[in-house]
């Protein structure tokens, strides 16, 4: 492993961690809304958020590229208002990984929240707790293992994301290149040995994340 390799692994891990942390509050809030509230358009939102699970990742990437490109509606606004350019930067990497990982987090968190006995939340209300207090003193602590397993799953997914990332962030070595993209480049360039090294590293990290997640959700039962 060269210094560049370490830089690559560190960058990929940072991107995966950032995107997971970025979607965590939003994902858990959405999971709670799906698990505990009825509202119009719920099924639509649920389906929409899950779309990246089944769409070809390059399609998700294409959509993001259109939305966040300089002439895209969101990209234009961000550039004009905040001077922020997203596409083909590390921010685009975080964005792509977040969108791709969100459905896994939301699904896991939703299941975990649904498994919390509503009678406990009701008792908390009779004991004078506000909805917010009910959430962070009862729902969240009781669902935390499931949510954490979802976080690990989302992290592992983000680490392996390829299609959406390459569409919206490109392949700029040292700037936007992530592990999977680097592996693809290596194979294209005929450097199979290096590709295998990176593949091995990816596998080890993914294995550890899934193994930890599995262990945690097992212990809950």
């Amino acid at each position: 492993m060269t210094g560049n390799d370490w830089q690559l692994v560190g960058f990929s891990a940072r991107m995966a961690v950032s995107s997971t942390l970025l979607i965590l509050p939003f994902g858990v809030a959405l999971a709670w809304l799906l698990a505990r509230r009825d509202w119009p358009g719920k099924t639509f939102v649920e389906t929409f958020v899950s779309l990246p699970l089944v769409l070809p990742p390059v399609v998700t990437g294409l959509v993001l590229l259109e939305l966040f490109g300089k002439r895209g509606p969101l990209g234009h606004w961000l550039h004009a208002q905040l001077g922020l350019d997203v596409v083909f930067t590390w921010k685009a990497v975080v964005l792509a990984l977040g969108v791709m990982a969100l459905p896994l987090l939301v699904r896991a968190a939703r299941t975990a929240i649904e498994e919390v006995n509503p009678a406990l939340e009701q008792i908390a209300r009779t004991l004078g707790a506000s909805e917010w207090r009910v959430f962070y003193t009862v729902t969240l602590p009781l669902a935390r293992r499931g949510i954490f397993a979802g976080v690990l799953l989302a992290f592992a997914r983000a680490l392996g994301e390829f299609g959406a990332t390459i569409m919206v962030a490109g392949n700029i070595p040292g700037r936007t290149t992530t592990l999977p993209v680097a592996i693809y480049s290596d194979v294209q360039a005929g450097d199979d040995a290096h590709a295998w090294t990176l593949a091995g590293i990816s596998t080890v990290i993914a294995f550890l994340a899934l193994w930890l997640g599995e262990k945690l959700s097992r212990r809950r039962q």
Binding site: A119, I123, R125
Partner: peptide, 10 residues
């Protein structure tokens, strides 16, 4: 329920 001041034992 939080404002009713009841004690509930299910």
């Amino acid at each position: 329920p939080k404002n009713r001041g009841v004690g509930f034992v299910p």
